[in-house]
């Protein structure tokens, strides 16, 4: 069990000790700092996804758990190592911090000293971000890329309009969007016939339905009506009442989806246009 640390400097000291404690064959390496903002209701789901992540994207991971009561912060630092080929082991740091009181309102002042110098910063936000609130606005200020999963958002498509407002400030990845990629490839193969479509019916999550409709509207530059049939995953698309073919292959697993988004550094104009066309 890692020791509980009550200040950023204590966390920094612990990180430094871990680094000095490594043997010669263990390579401490990072390609990014990955910040995850995990409100209480998302704790379990977040740990599941993180489990598969560090192996593919050696990173310093800072998981922030905002708490509704108390004061100050409680941090823990873990080093995790993964065997690579030929006896080489890579290790990464995971810092878990419970933020209370003002530190939950101003998380950047806790996170910024812990970022790895000069590496890109990815911010994974579980649930609907509180657009306009200091905690969120500050954190996107230090992030190079915000990763959301709009499947987790209630009240769609309205929040998409709020998100469109931050595109100029931070690049955004949406795991819900990534989950539609097999279907988008399949729909693209229906060109040019699909150019005349006027109605689309999507059986899947609200986010997938909205994003697919937004994508077709923005790419085809025309209005297209959306009918949504709720389902917890994307299982069917109908174009003007005709079922579209099912795309080949298996749907990607959550850790893969997050991992793929972490390879990207620049803005995704196609996604942004799709979001703008949802509302």
């Amino acid at each position: 069990m890692a020791q509980t640390l009550d200040s950023v400097s204590a966390i920094e000291r612990q990180l430094a000790e871990l680094r000095l404690g490594d043997g010669g064959s263990r390579l401490r390496t990072s390609v990014m700092t990955h910040i995850a903002w995990v409100p209480e209701e998302w704790v379990e789901a977040a740990e599941d996804v993180l489990a598969g992540l560090a192996e593919r994207h050696p990173s310093r991971t800072i998981v922030l758990f905002p708490q509704s009561h108390g004061d100050g912060l409680e941090g823990e630092v873990d080093a995790e190592s993964f065997a690579m080929t030929e006896g080489l082991t890579i290790c990464t740091d995971t810092i878990r911090i419970r933020l209370h009181g003002t530190s939950a309102e101003h998380p950047t002042s806790v996170v910024e000293p812990l970022l790895i110098s000069d590496l890109p910063v990815f911010l994974r936000w579980r649930g609907l971000p509180p657009f306009g609130e200091p905690a969120f606005e500050e954190l996107i200020g230090v992030a190079d890329r915000l990763i959301v999963d709009t499947t987790e958002w209630p009240g769609l498509p309205k929040p998409y309009a709020r998100m469109a407002g931050i595109f100029e400030r931070v690049a955004v990845s949406d795991i819900a969007w990534a989950r539609t990629s097999r279907w988008r490839s399949m729909l693209a193969s229906l060109w040019p016939a699909i150019g005349k479509v006027e109605r689309i019916k999507v059986t899947g999550t609200e986010a997938q339905a909205q994003l697919l409709a937004g994508w077709l509207r923005s790419r085809l530059e025309k209005s297209i009506a959306l009918q949504h049939e709720p389902s917890n995953k994307l299982v069917g698309v109908e174009l003007d009442g005709e079922p579209a073919p099912f795309p080949p292959g298996d749907p990607p697993i959550p850790a893969d989806l997050l991992s793929d988004e972490l390879d990207k550094l620049s803005r995704d104009p196609v996604y942004e246009a799709a979001v703008l066309a949802t509302v």
């Binding site: 200040s7 100050g72 912060l73 009181g101 530190s103 950047t108 002042s109 806790v110 000293p113």
Partner: peptide, 8 residues
């Protein structure tokens, strides 16, 4: 005024 390590 501002915030350092989460404290005002």
């Amino acid at each position: 005024r501002g915030y350092i390590e989460g404290q005002e």
